[in-house]
């Protein structure tokens, strides 16, 4: 019992506050993410419980990366709610990227509600030596 792992604390889902109104009903939440990078790539890991892989969309344009996910319908109509401690809704989050990303080789994996996006960096521009000829 000396090396005790801490209990995970409850945190409310953060609802996305957006100026633009949604065109579809339902709430939108911001997923929790880990972001890290090494020399080769930038990686974003996002918790999106309830979202099947076909409902995830990843979009990169003008250096803005958008992650969104729609959970599959989880509670059938015939069921009557007894207790509701968490809300469900779409997930959406945007990031502005400062690195130049190799768009052709972006990889995304979804496993048990965790989305992992790997964004490979474009290698550093190689210095080009320019020959100067006399004449």
């Amino acid at each position: 019992m000396t090396t005790q792992t801490q209990d995970i604390q409850v945190r409310d889902k953060r609802e996305v506050k957006s100026d633009a109104e949604q065109t579809t009903p339902g709430r939108v939440f911001s997923p929790n993410v880990d972001i890290f990078e090494d020399d080769q790539a930038l990686t974003i890991v996002a918790d999106m419980p309830g979202v099947p892989s076909e409902n995830v969309s990843i979009d990169l344009r003008n250096d803005v990366l958008s992650l969104s996910g729609v959970p599959s319908v989880s509670v059938p109509e015939k069921e009557e709610h007894v207790l509701r401690e968490y809300e469900t809704g779409k997930y959406f989050r945007q990031f502005t990227l400062s690195e130049v990303i190799d768009q052709e080789h972006i990889e995304a994996k979804l496993n048990n509600g965790v989305l992992r996006v790997t964004l490979p960096k474009v290698g550093p521009a190689k210095p080009r030596k320019i020959q100067i000829t006399e004449g």
């Binding site: 069921e79 009557e80 709610h81 007894v82 968490y86």
Partner: peptide, 10 residues
């Protein structure tokens, strides 16, 4: 207490 739970019934 984590995890939060939703309970329903038929």
């Amino acid at each position: 207490v984590y995890p939060l739970m939703n309970v329903s019934q038929d």
